[in-house]
């Protein structure tokens, strides 16, 4: 995968299908609403396909390509009507954009549909910057943050500069670099429960690096990774609060952080 090309901004408001992702839908809808607000602010007409469930990544990464293919076809059918598909997760978008073609490679027609939809499917931060050329205005948050680059977004989709560019426009917010920002947090989907000791060793180191950054906030673009890191930080009694970057950009940075009471 290459970094999405920076084209000129769509002339008329594009019709965007919001790919909520199953974790956001169940665990933290506020990330979905933050995405919705940002996409609207950026000038999109946003719709949310009701029938969306799971993109099939757990099956694909467990070697069950046949079941992943069933879910991939469903996903393609649900989202094909839109100009763009946008999701607040590099991992879920990576699955659809970088892997559906392979998942459906036994069927040339479906594989082609996967490829075409993949070209219009974006991770939220990269869509806002690379496609919509969006700049947040009037967002304030007096705090410091460090940023973890989730692996799929970073390496499958080239998401790195975009969230930083957006967060740079938040008044009062300063970046404190994270040592090993490109190192996996140890989540890895089902990996974290299949190999709990290793996952714990990796996230323990990540939590130490986050503490060393001296930031008040941990931000990222993937809820799975954020739940893993914030869960570790909370268990260790850390004061660092964790939020999805979209929440901060949508002006929800003072709301309850991940794992905090409403």
């Amino acid at each position: 995968m290459t970094t999405p090309q920076s084209a000129s901004r769509p002339a008329s408001p594009p019709r965007v299908g919001l790919f909520v992702t199953c974790l956001v839908d169940a665990m933290r809808p506020s990330v979905g609403f933050a995405a919705l607000k940002l996409l609207r602010d950026a000038g999109c007409r946003v719709e949310v396909p009701d029938a969306q469930t799971c993109c099939g990544q757990p099956a694909f990464n467990s070697g069950d390509t046949a079941d992943a293919a069933v879910l991939a076809r469903r996903f393609i059918e649900s989202f094909e009507p839109y100009d763009y598909v946008v999701g607040p997760s590099g991992s879920c978008v990576g699955m659809t954009r970088a892997h559906y073609e392979e998942v459906l490679s036994n069927d040339p027609a479906w594989s082609e549909r996967a490829r075409r939809l993949g070209e219009r499917t974006y991770e939220l931060m990269s869509f806002l910057v690379d496609v919509m050329h969006y700049t947040p205005t009037d967002v304030k948050l007096d705090s410091s943050f460090t940023y973890h680059d989730s692996c799929s977004g970073l390496r499958e989709l080239g998401v790195h500069d975009q969230p930083r560019a957006l967060l740079d426009k938040v008044t009062g917010l300063t970046l404190k670099p994270l040592e090993g920002n490109d190192v996996c947090c140890g989540f890895g989907g089902t990996f974290c429960v299949k190999y709990p000791s290793i996952s714990n060793a990796v996230v323990t180191e990540k939590a130490e690096a986050i503490e060393r950054s001296g930031a008040q906030l941990l931000l990222g673009g993937d809820l799975g990774c954020l739940m893993n890191m914030s869960g570790k930080l909370k268990r260790q009694g850390s004061k660092v609060r964790s939020l999805h970057a979209a929440e901060v950009l949508a002006g929800m940075g003072n709301g309850p952080a991940i794992g905090e009471e409403d």
Partner: peptide
Amino acid sequence: NACTLNGR
């Protein structure tokens, strides 16, 4: 299986 598929 003991891999997070992080791609580094």
